[in-house]
Design a binder for these strands. Structure first.
Ligand SMILES: [Zn+2]
Ligand SMILES: [Zn+2]
Ligand SMILES: [Zn+2]
Ligand SMILES: [Zn+2]
Lengths: 161, 161
DNA sequence: TCCGTTATGTTATCTCATAACGCATCATTA
DNA sequence: TAATGATGCGTTATGAGATAACATAACGGA
């Protein structure tokens, strides 16, 4: 969670997973991979685990640093390859405006993600935007829109207090 | 213009400005700065000129390389500071998903920009989205949204052919 | 002219991401 | 089971994007 230096509020809506809940999430990911002939290999699984454990968006080099069980970092390509895989399968998303990554909270495969990001505490919440409206608005000159990146910024409920 | 390697289409909708049109745009920028006690200094003006001359989004290090009149590049902070100023005044926008910068085409100060980006030729077109609708859609959990970044990808009219 | 403020020049460093190469692993099939 | 092709990993090195820190210069009001 990359919060503003002076944020005094409680953490956001997505504390990291632990214990059986985390284990269940990883088992579910295994199953979804198995169903499509994809392989949730050790580094891929480890990066997903780190994302799920985190309280908020994780930077790539935070993942690199946290990768090894006993303090040994990973090499950058290891983590970037895993992130590419996780994004491709819809297990994770990149937040462009943060250069950071989150696990998917919507658990629909291949869906389009949008985020609201709290400028105070750094929480990022995924939501499913109204794309019909947006696509209509986003074709000003005959563009055929294929994907949309939407990242809103503001204050989460806790930080409005 | 950062186009796909194999794009065979005509250039996008915004060829770079040259001659009197470019000069007029810079004079207009001077006037808008004067009206608000802001200073369009030499490096700021030069970076704006480079953005206006370009056919499409410019990377920061392209601006750095092109900065000097006789081939001498600028130092990074010179260009990044100028970009910060130009963004603050609404003369330029950063496109997060490209790590690139464009001059504002809407010439409304302080407005919120959105872009459609052609995946084939690299053209980026600015438009004014329907933010009322999006803001409503973007408040899934009581977030108070302040700004929205919207970047769509697809094919421009020329590249659909 | 003095002084506070704003902007620039300069050096160094930091963060983020990928290219390239060889080896390991897995699945296929002969 | 051995050969084969495809996919993924480990490793080294480098490229691309951005900023910290500090000194100097230019501006603007008192
Ligand atoms: Zn998702
Ligand atoms: Zn918050
Ligand atoms: Zn604009
Ligand atoms: Zn195009």
């Amino acid at each position: 969670m990359h919060m503003g230096a002076d944020c005094h509020h409680a953490e956001g809506a997505h504390p990291g997973l632990t214990g059986p809940v985390l284990a269940d999430a990883l088992v579910l990911a295994e199953r979804r991979c198995a169903a499509t002939q994809e392989r949730l290999t050790t580094p891929r699984r480890r990066v997903l685990e780190l994302l799920l454990e985190a309280d908020g968006p994780m930077k790539a080099y935070d993942l690199i640093a946290a990768f090894g069980a006993h303090g040994e970092p990973a090499k950058p390509p290891t983590v970037y390859r895993a992130l590419e895989f996780l994004e491709r399968l819809g297990f994770a998303h990149r937040i462009e405006s943060l250069n950071a990554y989150v696990p998917c909270r919507m658990d629909g495969q291949g869906h389009r993600a949008a985020f609201v990001i709290c400028e105070c505490c750094g929480a990022a919440e995924e939501f499913e935007p109204d794309f019909a409206t947006q696509l209509a608005a986003a074709a000003p000159s005959g563009y055929a829109v294929r994907t949309v990146t939407l990242e809103a910024r503001g204050l989460c409920p806790a930080c409005q207090a």
